[in-house]
């Protein structure tokens, strides 16, 4: 699968928000887990990413740990979430 424009945008947002200095958008595999394995992000990074999404796209989620985990599994699921919920 190819990377969509939105996925690219999200990659840049992740790198910028989390100040991942040695990472380029090409390094982020859309299907790899973002957390623990893959990029190795932690739970605080997840909160920060959530807030960045909220700020940029006006997205909120119902407070449910399981759905959070699914949406934040990898870049592809994150892009699907933004696509479905974005306000702006």
């Amino acid at each position: 699968m190819t990377t969509t424009a939105l996925e690219h945008e999200l990659k840049e947002m992740i790198i910028e928000t989390l100040e991942l200095e040695d990472v380029t958008p090409a390094d982020i595999d859309p299907d790899e887990p973002l957390f623990v394995e893959g990029l190795g992000l932690d739970s605080i990074d997840a909160l920060e990413l959530g807030l960045a999404l909220q700020k940029r796209y006006g997205i909120t989620l119902e407070s449910d740990a399981e759905s959070s985990r699914q949406h934040f599994a990898n870049l592809r699921s994150l892009a699907a979430l933004v696509e479905a919920r974005r306000v702006s």
Partner: peptide, 20 residues
């Protein structure tokens, strides 16, 4: 009242929204 057992990204997003 937002009740949580842990702070998840969704909680953070809700709170971010409130503050915004």
């Amino acid at each position: 009242i937002i009740e949580v057992s842990e702070i998840t990204p969704s909680t953070a997003m809700q709170l971010g929204q409130r503050i915004a």
